[in-house]
């Protein structure tokens, strides 16, 4: 099984075994397997629809947006405005963290500061508009406004704590081709 040493191949291998298991479950009416297959389809559908256009947009971002532009808005000279930009980008990111992770990585390599990058990622998971609307309709508007409002200082303080630690260690995020 030497070919399983490659991480990509191993992941694909697991995935096809998983698909086989789900298919067999449907054939044999194995309830647990069917439930797992249905759970899978809930997220798989969203990902299949969101990820391709999202990655095309990330590709366009890479070729069109210059380092200077990113540095100006999200870099060290941007002051308090970078948090506003980070929150603005976060609320308009469709797909939450699944899309925010790759975009955050691209932003970082174009010169965005750690505090802006982590503010963006964290805000992208908490400020999803469709989720928040659903939440407000079930748990009440007060609950949602509290959750969003309270998270702002935590997000910014947390991002700066992380930044302090990473800058001190001269850490840089992995380069993803």
């Amino acid at each position: 099984m030497g070919f399983l040493k490659n991480k990509r191949r191993r992941n694909y291998f697991f995935f096809f075994i998983f698909l086989g298991f789900v298919a067999v479950s449907f054939l044999l009416k194995f309830d647990t397997g069917i439930a797992i297959g249905k759970n899978f389809s809930i997220f798989a559908r969203d990902m299949a629809l969101i990820l391709p256009p999202a990655f095309i947009l990330i590709g366009l971002f890479e070729v069109w947006i210059s380092r200077e532009q990113v540095e100006k808005s999200f870099g060290h000279k941007s002051g308090i405005m970078k948090y506003l930009y980070a929150f603005a980008l976060a609320t308009t990111t469709v797909g939450g963290t699944f899309v925010a992770f790759p975009l955050a990585n691209s932003l970082y390599h174009k010169g965005a500061g750690y505090e802006a990058v982590f503010t963006y990622v964290t805000a992208a998971s908490l400020f999803m508009i469709p989720m928040s609307i659903m939440e407000a309709s079930i748990l009440g508007l007060k609950f949602t406004l509290l959750r969003l409002g309270l998270s702002v200082p935590f997000i910014i303080i947390g991002a700066n704590l992380l930044k302090g630690y990473l800058v001190k260690r001269n850490y840089s995020l992995p380069v993803v081709e």
Partner: peptide
């Protein structure tokens, strides 16, 4: 840009599947 985006997507896809 499109090529770059799809290349990135192709690279990360197995991790998303897992």
């Amino acid at each position: 840009g499109i090529k770059l985006g799809l290349k990135k997507f192709n690279k990360i896809l197995p991790s998303y599947l897992v």
